[in-house]
Computed example of a mutant assay.
Amino acid sequence: MASNKRVGIICASVVFGMVGLAYASVPLYALFCQVTGYGGTPSRADDNPKGVIAREMTVRFDSNVDHSLQWTVTPAATITDKIGAVDTVNYVATNHSDKPMTGMAVFNVSPERAGYYFNKIECFCFTEQTLQPGETVEMPIVFFVDPDLAENKDLNTIKEITLSYTFYASDNEGS
């Protein structure tokens, strides 16, 4: 009888542990990607302490909107600047529905190898945005490309980086 109770407690502990890990896996993976730049995930920074170098980099911006979100999102125009320069660009989103819609955005950088060197100081990603019917908003991104990219010989041929956002409807009220 005691043996069955012990087995039951162990099985219940394993189930609760697995459920807990399932819920924790997404934030832990996101943290891992931010720290390592894995999968083209940009790093977060407060500023660029390393300065600006002469090499230039073109940064393209892209947006995709899930069909369940009745928004149009216009990406920022492509820019070319010196590596290390802090730049600000805006995405513009418009709600085309007749009700408030709440959305979020996830991002990636390509080529993936450059994700480690792409640093965002300010970004709207992972923040829910609620747009009223017909409302248009600007969503700024402040970023820089880390000058250490120039020291990585495997990235000498990279002249262009693409920052891509995918917008989707949030499950919260307003969507």
Rank of each mutant, 00 (worst) to 15 (best):
P27R: 09
P27V: 00
P140W: 03
A93Y: 08
R6Q: 15
A24C: 07
E151P: 03
K159G: 07
P111Q: 09
L28N: 10
E128Q: 08
S63R: 07
K50M: 04
G103C: 00
V89T: 03
D148A: 05
L163T: 08
F118M: 14
L163Y: 15
S97R: 00
V142I: 14
I53K: 05
V15L: 09
V7M: 15
F126N: 14
Q70W: 10
V14M: 10
T72D: 13
T36G: 03
A93V: 04
D148R: 06
Y168E: 06
V145Y: 05
A12K: 12
E173N: 11
M18V: 12
T130G: 01
M18S: 04
H96L: 08
A76V: 03
T72S: 14
D81W: 03
I161C: 05
D81S: 13
D98P: 02
A169P: 07
H96E: 05
D62N: 13
D146V: 07
G134E: 12
A45M: 07
E173Y: 10
G8Q: 14
K153M: 05
S25M: 07
G20Q: 00
V92N: 04
H67L: 09
T127N: 15
E122Q: 13
T80Q: 03
A76P: 02
E173G: 10
P147L: 01
P42F: 02
V7G: 14
T94L: 08
M104S: 05
T88F: 08
D47I: 11
F32H: 08
S3H: 14
L163N: 12
P42E: 08
D154I: 02
Y38S: 01
F32I: 03
C123R: 05
H67C: 09
E56P: 09
D98N: 01
D171R: 13
F167D: 03
L149C: 00
A114L: 08
K159I: 08
P42L: 09
T80A: 08
